[in-house]
Amino acid sequence: MPELFNQREPVYVQVVRHFKEQIAAGELQPGEEMPSRRELAGNLGINPNTVQRAYKRMEEENLLYTEGNMPSKITEDTKVLTQVRHELMLEAVETFIAAVKPIGVSLQEVQHKIKEQFLLEDEQDGGETA
């Protein structure tokens, strides 16, 4: 979980993003139990109502499901899980484009630099690919 929450967006939105990132990275598996709302609030040092709001948002987005009084679990719906990955990637690409467009780089330059940097990161990570 982020050690410090930023002040630009609500904490519950940051909690949702964190879990989406963990799901997309495979750190949270389909069907895996989530911590209780109270437990997560205590671990993060935030209000339980904030965690409740984050869980509610994730349930609305079909990322989590809760059956009766059982713990909430990560969805097993592969379509939803794939969509999370695409959403995060699109968000990152849009942010990147907004940052580089003003400096007037061409698409070809961007593609070359991304490929170069991606391969460099792989080398530094011991050859692992995402």
Rank of each mutant, 00 (worst) to 15 (best):
M1P: 08
E3C: 09
L4V: 14
F5P: 00
N6W: 10
R8I: 14
V11A: 02
Y12M: 05
Y12G: 00
Y12T: 02
V13P: 03
Q14L: 03
V16Y: 01
R17M: 05
K20H: 05
A24H: 03
E27Q: 12
L28S: 00
L28F: 11
L28C: 01
E32T: 01
E33D: 14
P35L: 05
P35S: 07
E39Q: 14
E39D: 12
P48E: 01
N49I: 11
N49R: 09
T50H: 02
A54D: 05
K56S: 03
R57S: 15
R57Y: 07
M58K: 00
E59P: 00
E60K: 06
E60Q: 09
E61W: 03
E61L: 04
L63V: 00
L63Y: 01
T66F: 04
T66H: 13
N69P: 05
I74V: 10
T75K: 02
T78S: 13
K79A: 15
V80G: 03
V80R: 04
V80S: 00
L81I: 05
L81H: 04
T82S: 10
Q83N: 13
Q83V: 05
R85A: 09
E87N: 10
E87T: 09
A92D: 15
A92T: 08
E94D: 09
A98Q: 13
A99H: 13
A99Y: 07
V100G: 00
V100F: 05
K101I: 08
P102N: 04
I103G: 10
G104K: 07
V105H: 10
L107D: 13
Q108L: 08
E109W: 12
K115A: 12
E116R: 13
F118C: 07
L119Y: 10
L119C: 05
E123C: 08
Q124A: 12
D125L: 12
D125Q: 10
T129D: 08
T129S: 12
T129H: 14
